[in-house]
Structure formats: structure tokens, C-alpha cells
């Protein structure tokens, strides 16, 4: 097991992400931060105050549940727990930043794009991820990346966050290893 980010590095990485997003955000279009359940949701929530500090306000915030849009539903089966999408604003004509923890095959992001577009017509959608581990299966690339790392398919990148896991840490592990 290799540690990729410890608590401080994770906070710094989020700060870096927030500054990059703030630098790119348009000033004349409402900005929305949308986290993909579940860890993308937590990361998006943490980015909010950082973005406000960087001068991006007002901000919309929402959470996307992509369970019903996944292409691997039949393999993950009843493990998929539906928690629901919570987007209370009209996404049409907003500049949306999708936030996820790890970018891997790109399939989650594909599902998120479909889910988001069913809600309206955003002016633009950008993708921010904490870790890009490579090995894409779809032509999807991030706009804002916290950490790029080369991995192999037998690896697992675990993003653990205080809110859901009690600790802030990102580790690279072997798929066979029990957590």
C-alpha cells in the first residue's frame, strides 16, 4: 500500500484545484459546483469555501446520483444504493464544474454527463478530479486535476475523507488486498 496524499497534501491539492477553477471560471455566467455521489459530493462541499475565498460567488451547489445512468448496473446489482440527485437550481445556462474523487475508465463521468444533460442545458460542463489514475476506456479528459498518477488495472485508488471515512488520505493499493 502506498500513500499518495496525506491530510495536509490533500488540503493543499484542493486549494490548488480551487484556484485553477477560479482562474478559469467565467465572470458573466452563474457557476455551479456539482459533486458526484458519494466522495465527489464531499469534495465539492469542501471546494465551496475555497472557491468563495478565491472570489467566485455566488455559487450553485448540487449533488448528482449517477446510479440510474451507469452502464455496469447489471454487474454491481443491488449494491447500487440510490440516494437521489439533489440539484435545486436550473442548470440551463450555468457553467458547471463536475467534481469526482478519482478519474479512471471515464464511465462514471459519461453517466454524470447524461444525468446532468437530462436536467437542462448548461452553458458548459467542466470536470475536476482529485486524482487522475489513467487507463481511460472512453474519450473523456479532466479540465482540473489535483494529482496525476500512473496505475495499473489491478490497483485500487482509495480516497478516504474525514466526513465519510474518519480520515483524510489517498492511497494506492492492490485490488486483492482487503481494506
Amino acid at each position: 500500500m502506498t500513500q499518495l496524499l496525506d491530510h495536509h497534501e490533500l488540503q493543499d491539492t484542493l486549494g490548488k484545484l480551487a484556484r485553477a477553477i477560479a482562474g478559469a471560471a467565467p465572470r458573466d455566467v452563474p457557476v455551479a459546483i456539482v459533486g458526484i455521489r458519494r466522495r465527489g459530493e464531499t469534495l465539492a462541499k469542501r471546494l465551496l469555501p475555497l472557491l468563495e475565498k478565491a472570489g467566485i460567488a455566488p455559487l450553485h451547489y448540487g449533488v448528482l446520483d449517477i446510479t440510474l445512468y451507469r452502464d455496469d448496473l447489471t454487474t454491481i446489482g443491488p449494491n447500487a444504493v440510490l440516494r437521489g440527485t439533489e440539484i435545486e437550481f436550473d442548470v440551463t445556462d450555468t457553467w458547471v464544474v463536475l467534481v469526482d474523487d478519482v478519474l479512471y475508465t471515464g464511465r462514471s463521468v459519461r453517466a454524470a454527463l447524461d444525468a446532468l444533460i437530462d436536467l437542462g442545458r448548461p452553458r458548459a460542463i467542466r470536470l475536476a478530479v482529485l486524482v487522475d489514475r489513467g487507463l481511460r476506456e472512453l474519450p473523456i479528459q479532466p479540465d482540473f486535476v489535483g494529482l496525476r498518477t500512473d496505475t495499473e488495472s489491478h490497483h485500487v485508488v482509495r480516497v478516504m475523507l474525514k466526513e465519510t471515512d474518519g480520515v483524510d488520505e489517498v492511497v494506492l493499493d492492490d485490488r486483492g488486498n482487503a481494506h
Binding site: T67, L68, Y69, G84, D118
Partner: peptide, 15 residues
């Protein structure tokens, strides 16, 4: 989780 689907303009999910 499904309640929200019926409140959208596109009342459909591909599940």
C-alpha cells in the same frame, strides 16, 4: 431517490 425523477423536465432515467 426516485421522487426527484418525476419533478424534472425530462421525466426519465435509463435504468
Amino acid at each position: 431517490g426516485f421522487q426527484e425523477v418525476s419533478t424534472r423536465s425530462v421525466k426519465k432515467v435509463p435504468a
